[in-house]
């Protein structure tokens, strides 16, 4: 039981896929301009990671090592197509915002990385939990980045206004949004700062 808990909660901080394993940055950061698409993306990745881990763990003894990459890609691509169709059916607006990034979950290194590193050598239930843990660990970073970018970039959270209208310069106030937050480079700088804070609190992760 304690082992299973470790698989589930380890990726939240000590073994976080984004800031410790440096995986899955590719398709992640561009969806963090606002909080809502970031949450949808995090859930999609969690579902795909969990189920691809489960399926590959069930298949792990039947797949020859030479062709395993292709088999993994087919399993992952099939899951991503399912997720994409569901998103298109139920949250069409957000699916439009996410555009190509849903398709890029296929090549998201977290999914492949966890299948390669964990699911091929472990039992299905443990792999499933590991997938959920890593998906949520990834989502955590996405939500933190999106929180700062939406709050400072457009003054709202999840579309609700946080900074009062009357503060803005156009209304005679003193405040103005930081437009730079909406540009892609800021996402990288915020992740850099998250890594900085995280590693200064966890000294064992620092590089010598």
């Amino acid at each position: 039981m304690s082992n299973n808990m470790k698989y589930l909660t380890g990726p939240f901080s000590a073994n976080n896929p984004v800031i410790v394993q440096i995986l899955g940055i590719c398709s992640a950061l561009a969806v963090t301009v606002q909080l809502k698409p970031a949450i949808v993306m995090a859930l999609s990745v969690t579902v795909v990671t969990a189920f691809s881990n489960l399926v590959m763990s069930l298949l792990r003894n039947g797949v020859p090592a030479r062709i395993r990459i292709i088999v993994q890609l087919v399993v992952i691509a099939a899951l991503v197509i399912l997720v994409d169709q569901v998103l298109k059916a139920y949250v069409y607006e957000i699916s439009k915002q996410l555009s190509v990034y849903v398709g890029l979950i296929i090549t998201n290194c977290i999914v492949m990385g966890r299948v390669e590193a964990f699911a091929l050598g472990n039992k299905p239930w443990a792999s499933f939990l590991d997938g959920i843990g890593n998906g949520l660990g990834y989502g955590l970073i996405l939500v933190i980045v999106a929180f700062f970018r939406e709050l400072f970039g457009s003054g709202s959270l999840l579309g609700f206004r946080i900074i009062p209208e009357s503060w803005y310069m156009t209304e005679g106030g003193f405040y103005s949004n930081c437009g730079l937050m909406l540009f892609p480079p800021m996402a990288l700088i915020i992740v850099g700062c998250i890594i900085w804070v995280h590693r200064s609190r966890n000294k064992d992760l620092q590089e010598k």
Binding site: F183, P185, G192, C193, W196, S200, E207
Partner: peptide, 23 residues
């Protein structure tokens, strides 16, 4: 470089600054 920023941390920040330059 501060010990906690070494490796990936500084790499992200450098990439961000290069991205701003590319804008």
């Amino acid at each position: 470089i501060p010990a906690a920023l070494k490796g990936p941390g500084i790499a992200f920040i450098i990439t961000g600054l290069m991205g701003i330059a590319f804008m």
